[in-house]
Amino acid sequence: MGSFARRLRDNSLTLVFLGLFLAALVGQAFVGHAAYNAEQQMQGSETETFGAYVTGPTFLVDVAENWQSEYLQFFLLIILTVWLVQRGSPESKQPSDAGRGSDSEQQVGDHARPDSPHWARVGGLRGQLYSRSLGLVMLMLFVGSWLAQSVTGRLAYNEERESAGLGDLTWGQYVTGPDFWERSLQNWQSEFLAVASMAFLAVFLRERGSPESKPVGAPNAQTGA
């Protein structure tokens, strides 16, 4: 197998999901544009070009509100599974292993391997940052997409208020108002339910060959397999 083909295989999970993401985003743009213009026509308002729609607040707020809920889900899953457990789930550590773990278990500092990442070997502040880098980056992505949602959501909401002859809301008024939180909570509740369902159903159900599942013959009580 050539080096390029090997790199494709070794990164196939990420590449396929990025491809699915782009396909879904493009699909959302086209059907969202059609739905938006249909609504505009029913209201007797002017339609928008595709370019104006995908760079406008109506499309961008829909994208941002989904992104922020996804990154919130992964941030909480990463952080909460440090201490919280679900006996029998492959998504959980053993109940006795709850917590950050020892330096020896985490292979950091003096316990690092020769091929460990550099920041895992150096210790100190850099080691502390690296040991929490995944959660920190997910938190930053959540906060960034949350802010993007708040800005684009305000613009979209003010467009609706303007068409109704009402004044604009400030950013502070919008993020403390019902439209922003209705958009956020409707996504959060579905993400939280999905994670809870996965953690619990994986105790009893199997998917042969998937790392998200225990081996088919593993006991239901086997945790973290």
Rank of each mutant, 00 (worst) to 15 (best):
V63D: 01
S190A: 13
G27H: 07
N66D: 10
A34N: 09
L125W: 11
G88I: 04
T81C: 01
S3W: 08
F192V: 11
Q68T: 00
S89M: 00
R183N: 08
Q73M: 14
V63I: 15
K214Q: 06
S69F: 02
A23F: 14
G19H: 02
S133W: 13
Q68H: 06
W119Y: 15
A23G: 14
P117C: 03
A29K: 07
P57C: 11
V122R: 11
F59W: 08
F17W: 11
R113W: 09
R126W: 13
W67C: 14
V203A: 00
W119H: 14
W146N: 13
A218E: 00
L84G: 03
G124H: 04
T223R: 09
M138H: 14
G51D: 07
L201S: 01
G167R: 04
Y71P: 05
G167M: 03
V203K: 02
N187F: 10
S3K: 10
A29R: 08
W171H: 15
E48P: 00
N37Q: 03
L205Y: 14
K214I: 03
R208D: 13
A199E: 00
F50Y: 15
F204K: 04
L60C: 12
V122D: 05
Y36W: 14
W119T: 10
Y71E: 11
G172Q: 13
Y53K: 07
E207G: 02
L20Q: 05
K214P: 01
Q106K: 14
S3H: 05
L20F: 07
R183M: 07
Q222C: 13
G127K: 05
F4M: 14
Q41G: 02
R206G: 10
D168I: 02
F142R: 07
D179L: 02
S89P: 00
L136D: 07
T58P: 02
L166P: 02
V26G: 10
G19Y: 03
Q128M: 11
G209Q: 08
I79E: 10
R206N: 10
S131W: 07
T47N: 04
L80D: 09
S104V: 10
G124M: 03
M1W: 12
L169T: 08
E191V: 05
V61Y: 01
V175Q: 06
G127A: 06
S145F: 12
F200S: 11
E48W: 14
G51E: 07
M140P: 00
G167W: 06
P215M: 08
Q186D: 10
V108M: 06
Q189I: 15
A38Q: 12
Q222M: 13
L193P: 00
Y53P: 05
Q189R: 13
E191G: 01
G135P: 01
W119G: 09
R7L: 14
L169C: 01
Y174N: 03
L201T: 00
Q43K: 13
A23L: 15
K214G: 04
Q128N: 13
H111V: 02
L134M: 12
G101T: 03
E46I: 04
L72D: 11
H33C: 06
P211D: 07
A34Y: 10
E212F: 13
F30D: 01
F74K: 13
L141Q: 13
G51H: 05
